[in-house]
């Protein structure tokens, strides 16, 4: 990923900045340009998610490549945030402890790096709450 491309989404990744449609009340992460329900009638405003939620489903990754090679085995999960939006994320926990419905909270972790001399990318992952 290019440095500029990551930097543009930095606030979303660091601080779970998404958005909400104030007309229908739906929350979005990652943020959307317009509300898919209200469409042109929707009004989108920025929203910082609390960072707590629960596991909707998960998969245990045992074979990976690149930045993720040394992390195996790890849990890739779909998390439903308390406000309602869902995201796919790395869930940092013992692989034999994860379960559907497990409460989780955000943590700040390294997401990857461009080799030993390139930029390091940081952002949000989740751990058991």
């Amino acid at each position: 990923m290019s440095v500029a491309r990551f930097w543009r989404k930095q606030q979303n990744r660091y601080n779970l900045i998404g958005n909400q449609c104030t007309v229908c009340g739906k929350y979005f992460y990652p943020p959307r340009g317009f509300c898919p329900v209200c469409r042109r009638d929707g009004k989108i405003v920025e929203h910082q998610f609390k960072g707590t939620g629960k596991v909707v489903t998960f998969s245990i990754i045992r074979s990976s490549s690149g930045n993720f090679k040394l992390l195996t085995p790890y849990v890739l999960a779909i998390i439903e945030l308390d406000e309602g939006s869902r995201l796919t994320t790395h869930l940092v926990c013992d692989i034999d402890k994860v379960y559907i419905g497990m409460p989780v909270k955000r943590v700040f972790r390294k997401l990857g790096e461009e080799g030993s001399s390139g930029a390091i990318f940081y952002g949000t992952k989740f751990v058991p709450a």
Partner: peptide, 16 residues
């Protein structure tokens, strides 16, 4: 540290 932790992530968690 965990594989994805370093001084930056530790500093952020402490500050938060």
């Amino acid at each position: 540290p965990d594989m994805d932790e370093d001084t930056i992530t530790i500093s952020v968690e402490a500050a938060r």
